[in-house]
Design a protein around this nucleic acid. Structure first.
Lengths: 136, 136
DNA sequence: GTCCGTGCAAAGGATTTGCATAATC
DNA sequence: GATTATGCAAATCCTTTGCACGGAC
């Protein structure tokens, strides 16, 4: 029901928006760069401009449909906002991305922000290392 | 003793490297972008090219003298490697960066990695929000 | 029909690189 | 003196923007 999701977000239903949203919904755990989205669509025969991909991803982020991460300095990646909050484990060998969520950490963070009179809005927490398969 | 630090890292002692290292050592808690380093040096009368600033910062990072962060998508910031580990709070209004370190969070992380048979190497943890001064 | 969305090409900003000169050891 | 570093300008990469056309409602 990608069309419904778009309407709910106050976005007109257009081909680029539908295709991009479907791409993320088909693989809810994928973390894609704008370039990857662009190339994937093109290899499926879709003729969607890279500028449009950037614009749509930005709109999706503002609408809370996707989340943007800057795991690496040179490019951002996007993943579907699945409703839950979670953080990431990233394998530095194979690029595998796993998710985790820990209540103890979540509540400690709030305490820390409070202590510093800081109004927390979001946070990112990413553990880098080697996944099970890459440890041979 | 910036010159000693450079030699220990296997880097020739040059004016740009000395000046850049001194800048970080004078303010051990500063988090500076390449552009900020460049501008600060110029307002002190130093004539150091921006390309050199980038090259030196990269070398310092490889030598473990500074740490690079991608808090924001569009530019990286660098801070002195002080030996300790710590994480960050970033003000989304004024860009202020504060540091924190929490033992509870640190140990929970290790537990999480262990549960997933993941060998943790590093991690980044960044809380975004509004600092005391920007809350008016 | 109006307004918003898109594609393309050009612009923008951060970072990197090529090359001749200048500095270090 | 040989080698490495620097400065400048040009190049590169990711991302954004201007504009005329096409599509959604």
């Amino acid at each position: 029901v990608p069309a419904t999701n778009l309407k709910k977000a106050g976005l007109k239903v257009t081909v680029p928006r539908l295709k991009i949203l479907s791409l993320f919904q088909e693989k809810p755990y994928s973390h894609l760069s704008a370039e990857q989205v662009y190339k994937t669509l093109h290899s499926s025969g879709e003729d969607i401009g890279l500028a449009t991909v950037y614009r749509v991803l930005t709109q999706f982020e503002e609408a809370g449909i996707v989340v943007k991460h800057n795991f690496e300095a040179n490019q951002s990646v996007f993943e579907l906002q699945k409703g839950d909050h979670h953080d990431h484990l990233v394998c530095v060998k194979c690029g595998l991305i796993m998710e985790f969520c820990d209540e103890v950490i979540e509540s400690r963070q709030e305490t820390i922000a409070k202590e510093k009179n800081f109004r927390m809005e979001t946070h990112t927490h990413c553990i880098y290392g080697v996944c099970e398969n890459c440890q041979d």
